[in-house]
Design a protein around this nucleic acid. Sequence first.
RNA 1: GCGCCCAUAGCUCAGCUGGAUAGAGUGACGGACUACGAAUCCGUAGGUCGCAGGUUCGAAUCCUGCUGGGCGCACCA
Length: 564
Amino acid sequence: MDAQRRTEGVIDEYLVECIKKSLSDIAREKSLKPEGFRDITLEIPKIEDHGDYATNVAMVFAGLFKEAPRKIADRLIACFSDPRNLVDKIEVAGPGFINFFLRDEAWYDVLRVIINKADKYGTSNWGYKKRVQVEFVSANPTGPLHVGHGRGAVVGDVIARALEATGHSVEREYYINDAGRQMEILGHSILLRYYELFGKNVDFPADYYQGDYIVDIAKEVKEKRGDRYLQMEEAEAVADLAKYGGQKILDGIRCDLADFGIEYNCWFSEKSLFEKSAVNKTIEELKEKGFVYEKEGALWFRSSDFGDEKDRVVVRSNGAFTYFASDLAYHRDKFERGFKQVIDVWGADHHGYVPRVMAGMKALGFDEKDLQVVLVQLVSLLRSGEPVAMSTRKGEFVTLREVMDEVGKDAARYIFLTRRSDSHLDFDLELAKEKSSDNPLYYVQYAHARICSLFRVAKEEGIEIDWSEDVDLSVLEQPQEKKMMKILAQYPSVVNNCAKFLEPHRLPYYLNDLVSVFHSYYNKNRIISDNEPLMKARFRLVKAIQTVIKNALGILGVEAPEKM
RNA sequence: GCGCCCAUAGCUCAGCUGGAUAGAGUGACGGACUACGAAUCCGUAGGUCGCAGGUUCGAAUCCUGCUGGGCGCACCA
């Protein structure tokens, strides 16, 4: 309806609105429903001759309209209305592409909007305050976080930030698996190390937790609680030590994540699900709906009726619930808490688990589209190209803490995002520390620092910048200047796509595109000069770049330093 | 054996959910600071998008088969 106001300063969304309106008009002429134009695509052609923006709608809707693409395109151009008067000319090309050429004024507008909106540029109300939950990391509290968890942490956090920036109401949650057998093994592991401290000879099983942190916890227990666990019955001691150790380790995890720039709204305990009988109720619901049956003493959920490859056990023959059962209860609980969209960030090795959870959601009456699972591939740690040996079994792993301490929070966060999350990542510790162009973070931060420095120098030279002044931007006529303005104009839709497709890696790639043009331009041109009108216009351009870098790094949770 | 993901420049990866002539970074080689930050820039080189079919105006992208790699296939979590 009000395309002009809703798309202020965001050119592509504005054009899409205009195109939709024209399509509706054409549909009406043909006595068709003026609907169904939701996902029309507008792209930026690789070749300049093809315009600033192009759309393929004439070809896409040729079938619907029963007319040749080029004719539809002509028709669309004829009835195209452009209230903001941004379009210079429109052409039909090739098999039916519609190419839009914009007036330079459109790009100048972008600069004005960016400077005006400042840190709000790139944010939107696209999400309409929709309640979204992002659950990520959720590592068992049986050991410290390692690098793989770090990647999941950043992916989850940046998805959350992108959703916030696009107007969603987001909560971050950590699911604590504090109810299962793993905790028992943890308690047992501590107890055995504890026995050792008192000189007992113990057989330490290979599948118990091997890490030195277990010994540390045992020492602490000995110091604080003496020898009381020597007399205690084993089961009781194990339960008590599991609780003690789990708490201790979880505190460490909280601290690591906080230092990594990640704050959760909720730490959700699996145990609490049992305490309020949520697991029971969930299984009861499935029973009532007739989706479970007994076989060989166990209770099975008919997940194969909902797209899973086979049925799954929810209650074992020994009467215990499976992890899957509590996970169903957990996801049910999420939706009952009012979240309209739930995002789970999991390690890619859990991909086989997705269909059964989806099956559960469907069986419980939820829309599977409201649950999205983002899979994060493992991280290989390298040092100067050589693999760093890691073995969880032997308890030898590089912790997130160690990586953070060595390369810094920002470099770690950024590098975790330089690849799509479902792709393997090589993380080179030496590269992450290097202060050179090899390091993608510094390349971007350097551009920001350079611009800051520019304004410092200007100030030292007594140059006053009045940001409210109406500056003539038509002196920005270099191809690179125009190119940068076009890239700046894309930023809001990059953020949108990040949130829409849950793909945080788009931001680092975008930043690299923007900043590489800037560095090149900077090397060839002077911003501060005697040519006052030109200088004023370039200050506007450079300010806009600085703003977008800062905003984008903000979504990535990375500093935009003024000096480096 | 079954299922999922991946295969793009020497290497590591993008490619905007089907668009027009395939893109970065890195490695290699050669250049640029007496002017706002050289943590930068400029140039050169590099491709049968794993292979074979199919779908259509149009395929790196979608469907099928094959090859090769990763990961899953518990009354574990």
